[in-house]
């Protein structure tokens, strides 16, 4: 089966600085790969490159079957990115932000009933749904960003510090929706500074440094196979 993400000697620059200096990375279907490393190691750049937001200047890159260098628009439509700052309009309400994002993406969950369900599911129902996004706490903004990703139902989840700003309930919610997506065949690339939280969720952990992958090790995820067996 073709990998969901395939980067070969991927190079990208932001301004005059090399953000990625020859990254090799492969992500299979249903797999969770965690990226760890110091600040500036290139974790966020890998996620942005895989989302089609950071153009590559050299190397090969395929995401969900699309050539990243030739068809970034198709990649953008197909992935779900939860970045540091969710794409929110402060003057619109929570419900309006979610509705706009999902309608723009042509997501199947853009109907009224689906939106309400999604808002309830992410703890943003009731009065919060009618609150301007500019009045939300950091954790609630994060939840709204997560609701957008869930609503888009992508086959590739790109999560940048996904647990940051979330309370215990929010973290449980995040891990729950991610587990559901993985069970449905999605894959995830997660950048995090919290190894104790994300390594148990990962099939593999890649350590980044200087814009490239410098080490790879197994994560702690145990996948449940049909019949109840586990694979480490």
């Amino acid at each position: 089966m073709a990998p969901v993400v395939l980067l070969r000697a991927a190079v990208a620059t932001t301004g005059r600085f090399p953000a990625l200096a020859g990254v090799d990375l492969e992500l299979g279907q249903g797999e969770v790969v965690v990226l760890e490393g110091a600040n500036g190691a290139g974790k966020t750049s890998v996620l942005r490159a895989c989302a089609g937001l950071l153009p590559l200047s050299a190397g090969e890159a395929t995401v969900l079957g699309h050539d990243l260098r030739r068809d970034a628009a198709a990649v953008r439509r197909a992935v779900g990115l939860l970045g540091h700052s969710p794409a929110l309009y402060d003057d619109l309400t929570v419900a309006e932000n979610l509705r706009f994002s999902l309608r723009a993406a042509g997501a199947p969950a853009a109907g009224r009933a689906e939106l309400l369900g999604l808002l309830e599911r992410t703890g943003l129902g009731g009065r919060v749904a009618a609150t301007a996004a500019g009045r939300l706490s950091a954790g609630q903004r994060r939840r709204l960003g997560l609701a957008v990703v869930v609503g888009r139902a992508p086959m590739l989840w790109l999560l940048d510090e996904p647990h940051a700003g979330l309370d215990a309930e929010g973290r449980t919610l995040l891990e729950g929706v991610l587990a559901e997506a993985l069970a449905a065949g999605a894959s995830a690339l997660v950048a995090s500074h919290e190894p104790e939280v994300v390594v148990p969720l990962a099939d593999r952990v890649l350590t980044m440094g200087g814009g490239r992958v410098v080490r790879s090790r197994r994560g702690g995820r145990r996948r449940v196979l049909a019949g109840g067996a586990h694979v480490a």
Binding site: V79, A87, A105
Partner: peptide, 14 residues
């Protein structure tokens, strides 16, 4: 121009 909104628009598929 808000944080993330420009990226959001590019990712939206519009």
């Amino acid at each position: 121009g808000g944080e993330g909104t420009r990226d959001g628009l590019r990712l939206s598929g519009l």
